[in-house]
């Protein structure tokens, strides 16, 4: 090695002395984790799509998800899930603002926006709990083995089948049971997403406590907030596709 090559080495991209991706190790690994998690969610959603494509009948999401808290039996398709979507988008925005405040080492700003993000995440989880409860406990009359029975939606029973010719005594159409896979995929995938939201809220609470303790001020940077932010935005990103696959189409 001559002295001339030393100068050359410093300018090369991959020969050390500089960060080739110009990004912290933890943040890069968070990106790769999120990429693998995208494949996990993708595999779940694609398997749902395969089963749905293989069926002659699939329940119309607008008929299944048409309830709103405190609205009784009003027919409000898409309303509640739109609220959930907006809650998650807004909490994603407050997270960006927390990361932005972190870039300027603005501790008060980080604390304020992290609290709002946590509130948004908790509100979303509350909405999901309500929706699950409503779906599991909401009874519907269906023809099951020749008898009229009242069942809710679970992973093993689905009252959202095709309508039969004829009407019940109260004027409602008689329906059969629907594909069992509907409940399994709905609870499985929204549950896996809800678990991500839950762990995201826990991570955000830990970040808030660390910020309040001044840990990041002592470190001199708020990179941990950025990494938590990446995870939180990913949760919002997955919801875009869950919303698409289960409610819109």
């Amino acid at each position: 090695m001559s002295t001339a090559s030393v100068a050359q080495v410093e300018t090369k991209w991959w020969t050390g002395g500089k960060s080739p991706f110009n990004v912290e190790y933890g943040k890069l690994m968070m990106w790769y984790f999120l990429m693998s998690d995208a494949f996990t969610f993708g595999a779940f959603l694609i398997s749902y799509g395969t089963i749905r494509f293989s069926q002659n009948y699939w329940p119309d999401p607008n008929e299944v998800f048409n309830a709103f808290p405190f609205a009784g039996h009003a027919n409000l398709p898409l309303a509640f899930v739109s609220l959930m979507t907006f809650i998650l988008i807004v909490s994603s925005v407050t997270m960006v603002l927390a990361v932005h405040a972190g870039h300027h080492n603005d501790r008060k700003g980080v604390i304020k926006w992290m609290i709002w993000t946590i509130v948004g995440g908790a509100a979303f989880l509350g909405c999901q709990a309500w929706e699950w409860t409503h779906l599991i406990t909401g009874d519907h009359a269906v023809l099951l083995n020749g008898k009229l029975e009242h069942i809710g939606t679970t992973v093993s029973r689905n009252p959202w089948g095709a309508a039969m010719p004829g009407m019940m005594h109260d004027g409602h159409p008689v329906s059969t049971t629907g594909p069992v896979a509907f409940g399994g995929y709905f609870f499985g995938i929204t549950g896996f997403h809800g678990f991500h939201v839950f762990s995201g809220v826990i991570i955000n609470i830990i970040m808030l406590i660390m910020t309040m303790n001044g840990t990041f001020d002592r470190r001199g940077h708020y990179l941990m907030i950025e990494k938590a932010g990446l995870y939180w935005h990913f949760v919002d990103l997955v919801w875009v596709f869950v919303f698409l696959c289960f409610y819109l189409i």
Binding site: I46, S47, G49, T50, I51, R52, F53, S54, Q55, N56
Partner: peptide, 12 residues
């Protein structure tokens, strides 16, 4: 996506 949706359709 293409392969598995196609597979579901063929299953139907």
């Amino acid at each position: 996506i293409a392969a598995f949706l196609w597979d579901g359709d063929s299953w139907k």
